[in-house]
Design a protein around this nucleic acid. Structure first.
Ligand SMILES: [Mn+2]
Ligand SMILES: [Mn+2]
Ligand SMILES: [Zn+2]
Ligand SMILES: [Zn+2]
Lengths: 138, 138
DNA sequence: AAAGCCATGCAACCGATTTGCAAAGTTATG
DNA sequence: CATAACTTTGCAAATCGGTTGCATGGCTTT
């Protein structure tokens, strides 16, 4: 992605555009599926994992990315859509393929509302479907 | 719970009723919310965590209990209802309270169906709501 | 009694995540 | 410009939940 565009994204979320952050944001923008910290590390030569870790944390805190707990034991990360506030209302479903191990953001599939018992207050939500993705099901 | 009743539960799932398993099953039956391996360990004096771990694994494989990934990093466990087969259709929603840290089985709240994109095959599902439980919301 | 099998206990390992701390880089101030 | 203050980065090490290896113990079968 165009550097100026990346800087704009970071700026919109009040994150200073360091060289490292631009690299990481660009890499995240290239992904078709959500990736783990280790995945991210493998896509670079010679970058420190802890720095990547902290970069992801920073991005997550500023809602540039969201993290996905797909039950595999390693968190996955993917870009948020523009203006996302990660509220229960605008969250989407995630799908983890048990065969190819990829985790997909089904951004067009919003999580259906569930009536909770009286007095339970909803703040966050996580819905993960598991099975076979389109490439693996045939 | 009555010992004979515990033995019946284990027998129904083809698990041999050892002393340890009866103790663990009884403890699980006493819980109001799902508990972690560490929680379980704390409720006993002087039992080996690995043995508890393996007991939980055995129970899970035989569908005596189900595990819940509530996103806290430690799996929680709770008894399955009688005859449960843990299929997508008969799964329920879980709720994790961000204040008291308890994880509830909302056994009366089935996970709503979601239309997946073409060719995605669903095998498993996990839906966790987070927020404040009835005791913590007031 | 001997052999076989499963359950248990203890030590050690593993991968993912997190923290501590010093060095390098940036920004603000005089 | 020079210095101080603050932020980001790199490397080492700790933490934590989960898992495995292996020897011992107990029950069952021959
Ligand atoms: Mn997503
Ligand atoms: Mn449950
Ligand atoms: Zn796949
Ligand atoms: Zn609570």
């Amino acid at each position: 992605m165009n550097d100026q565009r990346l800087i704009t994204i970071l700026h919109a979320r009040s994150v200073k555009p360091t060289a490292m952050r631009l690299l990481v944001l660009d890499m995240l923008a290239q992904q078709e599926t959500a990736i783990s910290l280790s995945d991210l590390e493998e896509q670079f030569d010679k970058v420190d994992k802890v720095t990547l870790y902290r970069t992801l944390k920073t991005f997550e805190q500023h809602k540039i990315i969201h993290s996905i707990d797909d039950g595999t034991g390693s968190a996955k990360y993917a870009l948020c859509s523009e203006g996302c506030e990660c509220n229960p209302g605008d969250l989407h479903v995630h799908f983890h393929c048990q065969l190819c191990k990829r985790t997909f953001c089904l951004t067009d599939y919003t999580i259906p509302a569930v009536n909770l018992p009286q007095k339970f207050v909803l703040k966050e939500m996580n819905m993960v479907m598991k099975g076979l993705c389109e490439d693996c099901s045939t």
